[in-house]
Amino acid sequence: MSASGKCWCPRSEGRTSLTTWHIHMLNARHELTRILPEIRQAAREAVTQASVHADLPDFDLVVKADPEGCIPGLGVGGFAPTPGLIEIKLDPDRFAAPMLVRTLIHEMHHLIRWDGPGYGRSLGEALVSEGLAGHFVLQVLGGEPDRWDATTPAQGSVRAAMNEWSRRDYDHARWFFGGGDLRKWTGYGLGHRLIAEHLSRHPDDNAVTLACVQAEALRPVMRRLAGTEGAAQNAEDSSTEGEDKADGA
């Protein structure tokens, strides 16, 4: 562990073997049959591309048809619930290999993190894990952030996240999928912004070197973002107050 709170888990010393991974198709009812070759090819491509940047832990990949479990309109949903396991849900009628590759690469970063500090139980830990996974996709594939990572959080969201940073009873669905005063994908947008802010000041870091960073090491970054948000809100309030006085003159 370094002074910055980082550990080195992506490339373990002495590792000489390739990643062992097994794909399990839940296809007793043949809902995936017509796209089985494309699924296998996309999985191989994702492993190959991700392995250029990081040593992936051994894992099992479970794939099943479940349109209701997919991101609306994209035909795929991913989850890494435990160490060494990725679960993928597909809508066969909306299947797109590039989207499956992106989803798998995102989940592969979660696998790396599971073998380090874990995904996390608090809001701050989840923000760091999701932010790093999104930046890993960019590191491997380039291009633009996924739409959830590009979400602009509403005013006040950063400060609210700072206040709930250590809470383990936070509402994950509310923060990451929307609810109440939080727009859809707020947590993904905050996590992406959090990591981007760190990387802007530490250009030698990336999603792989930070793969096992403790979330607490990035808490000052969120505090800095909260301060920036507060300053922006104060400036906006002052501007509005000035306009109101001018209107009343």
Score class of each variant (00 low, 15 high):
157 S>H: 00
134 G>Q: 15
137 V>Q: 09
165 W>S: 02
154 A>M: 06
156 G>C: 06
167 R>I: 01
149 D>F: 07
146 D>C: 05
160 A>S: 02
134 G>F: 04
144 E>R: 10
166 S>E: 11
159 R>P: 07
136 F>M: 12
140 V>R: 07
135 H>D: 05
141 L>D: 12
150 A>C: 04
160 A>G: 02
165 W>T: 02
157 S>L: 02
148 W>E: 13
157 S>A: 04
149 D>I: 00
168 R>Q: 11
134 G>S: 11
139 Q>F: 08
161 A>C: 06
158 V>N: 01
154 A>F: 07
157 S>C: 02
150 A>R: 02
167 R>A: 05
141 L>G: 12
168 R>Y: 03
156 G>P: 11
161 A>H: 02
159 R>K: 14
161 A>Y: 00
140 V>Q: 11
147 R>E: 13
133 A>N: 08
142 G>N: 15
159 R>S: 04
166 S>M: 11
134 G>E: 15
153 P>M: 00
154 A>C: 09
134 G>D: 15
131 G>K: 01
162 M>R: 15
147 R>W: 09
139 Q>P: 14
136 F>C: 13
167 R>M: 06
164 E>G: 08
135 H>S: 09
146 D>N: 05
139 Q>D: 13
167 R>N: 04
158 V>G: 01
137 V>H: 09
157 S>D: 06
160 A>E: 03
153 P>Q: 00
138 L>C: 10
159 R>E: 11
133 A>E: 07
137 V>I: 08
151 T>S: 03
164 E>V: 00
136 F>A: 06
156 G>D: 08
151 T>D: 03
158 V>R: 01
168 R>D: 15
166 S>C: 09
